[in-house]
Design a protein around this nucleic acid. Structure first.
Ligand SMILES: [Zn+2]
Ligand SMILES: [Zn+2]
Length: 560
DNA sequence: ATAGCCTTGACG
DNA sequence: CGTCAAGGCTAT
């Protein structure tokens, strides 16, 4: 099986991953164009004092898996306002250099009940010919458990693993020429193979597969990029509305995210900002602000007065949603008392941009830090509840993003404490927008101030969890992103399969160019459809792909 | 891998 | 010193 994923499988995978044809949902984001947005207060000229942590590279994702989740809980749909934080952080890890600490937690895998397949991505050619779905995987006829495909990349921030101690992990990982990260971590590899995804899961029919992005072993042929591969999955979801409903946050049409990609961060240049430096320019938008506003600032629209109520919010479906702290009339306390928008568990606080439970916080962190890339092989509509959240990490992660967790909130350097600096803004759902009467945009900063113009979303934002629910083809979807989306699923095909598709005219015009072997060239500008905060590569075709996107031969992989 | 609990550390 | 969010640790 391994050798060739059956077409059926491939197809199935493709569906989960990206179904171009499907109309639905999913979608997209990023764009090629970036608009700068002006942001409210954040400046990055200098990092304000604390070095704000740089967002994790993996943050660039363009993950688009979508889950649908029907029944069960989630529901939050609707009208939730979204908080958007943009990262502006460039925290360089400074202090950590001295202490290389082993990542203990990377530990092995566990096995678990979920069957997962592990694919070693790097092997060279990335997923060359046969996709790499691991052998075990088999048909999905009746996937009962969670079908997940995990692609794992080297974790970030693993100082101990690298050669260059002093450099930031990120930098050290880059390929000298391409700028692509190249380090292979044996450890990780093993893990991913063995445990990590359970490479071969003890259980035979894994509905899920794990992809390891690492490459350790193998492949000599090509430089392994390590990226996080986020799968773009268009979901088969039913209809948009449905889809949106299932996800906690439905901001579908709204352009929620914002972004300000600022150029400031050049990937190349490492900003070493001490955390101790105080720079006032940048005003750190910290969550505190948000809180403040919610809790203390009476002027804010969120009614602080209601706090005393402590009543959880419930939406129509009977579920509560807490992804947005800012609904009118909603107090922070109420939000906290609401169920985790992702799984329904108890909210433990504000994590990575939203109020979520401890487990989802940890899950999101692990996923991003360890660069795991999960792919749902079952339609990306798995329900995510307290009871089922372990079943399909792909759908869970997708939900995290949908609900507003920000990849940028994950610190690349893993520095602890302090305050995060990613920019954040509120984005109220359309339905609430009117009420809030804020800007046409309906976006607010954490302080409740209207966000200053953000244009169409930028990839980063979008992919970062923002609004990824634009339908493919919709106007708001940036071309590049769209291209990526269109192509992403192709990495599941072998070259021969691709050529067949191509000959059959099944590939869109946009996609084809990307299938041509190209040598990515690194561009210094961090402007990327996926994330403005990271390095990008410019394809000979002119398309830009973040360094987490990988194009190899005729396959394209996203490894964000 | 998960998730609960602990430690950090900027802010106030 | 308290708060809070981000990372670390570790028993399952
Ligand atoms: Zn949760
Ligand atoms: Zn799933």
């Amino acid at each position: 099986m391994a050798a060739e994923m059956s077409i059926a499988q491939a197809s199935a995978a493709a569906q989960t991953v990206a179904t171009p044809a499907l109309p639905t949902t999913v979608s997209a984001t990023a764009s090629g164009h970036h608009h700068h947005v002006s942001v409210t207060a954040v400046n990055v000229d200098e990092p304000p004092q604390r070095a704000r942590s740089a967002p994790h590279p993996a943050a660039a994702t363009s993950h688009i898996i979508h889950n649908g989740t029907p029944d069960v809980l989630d529901s939050s749909d609707a009208e939730v306002a979204r908080i958007d934080f943009h990262s502006v952080n460039m925290r360089s890890k400074k202090k950590r250099d001295d202490l290389p600490r082993p990542m203990s937690w990377e530990g092995e895998l566990s096995d678990g009940e979920r069957d997962v397949m592990c694919v070693d991505e790097e092997n060279s050619e990335p997923v060359p010919e046969n996709l790499s779905l691991p052998q075990t995987k088999q048909t999905l006829s009746d996937p009962k458990e969670s079908p997940v495909l995990l692609i794992k990349q080297p974790p970030i921030g693993n100082y101990s693993l690298h050669s260059t101690p002093s450099n930031s992990p990120v930098l050290s990982q880059r390929h000298p020429v391409t700028g692509v990260s190249i380090i292979s971590h044996k450890d990780l590899m093993h893990k991913s193979l063995n445990g990590g995804g359970g490479g071969m899961p003890p259980t035979p029919s894994p509905d899920s597969a794990v992809h390891s992005a690492y490459s350790v072993f193998s492949s000599p042929t090509h430089s392994p990029l390590q990226q996080r591969h986020l799968a773009l999955t268009p979901s088969l979801s039913r209809n948009n509305s449905d889809a949106s409903r299932s996800s906690c946050c439905s901001f579908g049409s709204v352009s929620a995210v914002s972004v300000s990609p600022t150029q400031q961060f050049s990937p190349t240049h490492s900003p070493i900002q001490g955390r101790h430096i105080h720079n006032i320019h940048s005003s750190p938008l910290h969550h505190n602000i948000l809180y403040r506003s919610l809790q203390e600032d009476p002027t804010i629209q969120y009614s602080a007065d209601q706090e005393p109520l402590d009543e959880p919010l419930e939406d129509k479906t009977g579920l509560l949603h807490s992804s947005l702290p800012a609904q009118p009339g909603i107090s922070r306390q109420q939000l906290i008392n609401s169920p985790c928008p992702i799984c329904g568990d108890k909210i433990s606080g504000f994590h990575y941009g939203i109020f979520s439970c401890e487990s989802c916080k940890g899950f999101f962190k692990r996923t991003v830090q360890n660069r795991k890339n999960y792919l749902c092989l079952r339609g990306a509509q798995c329900p995510v509840t307290v009871a089922t959240r372990k079943k399909c990490p792909a759908c869970r992660f997708d939900k995290c993003l949908q609900c507003g967790m920000k990849l940028e909130a994950i610190r690349e350097d893993r520095t602890r404490g302090g305050r995060s600096t990613y920019q954040c803004s509120y984005s109220l759902p359309p339905s609430l927008a009117g009420q809030q009467q804020l800007h046409g945009d309906s976006r607010l900063t954490p302080d409740g101030q209207p966000v200053i113009k953000m244009e169409p979303q930028d990839g980063a934002a979008a992919s970062a969890g923002g609004s990824r629910r634009i339908s493919p083809g919709s106007k708001g979807v940036p071309l590049l992103l769209q291209e990526i989306m269109d192509v992403e699923h192709l990495w599941h095909y072998s070259e021969s399969e691709l050529s067949k598709l191509s000959s059959e005219g099944r590939l869109t015009r946009e996609v084809q160019p990307l299938l041509v072997p190209q040598t990515p060239t690194r561009i210094s500008s961090p402007i990327c459809a996926i994330s403005p905060t990271i390095d990008c590569t410019k394809l000979s075709s002119g398309a830009r792909v973040c360094r987490y996107s990988k194009i190899s031969r005729s396959t394209i992989k996203f490894a964000c």
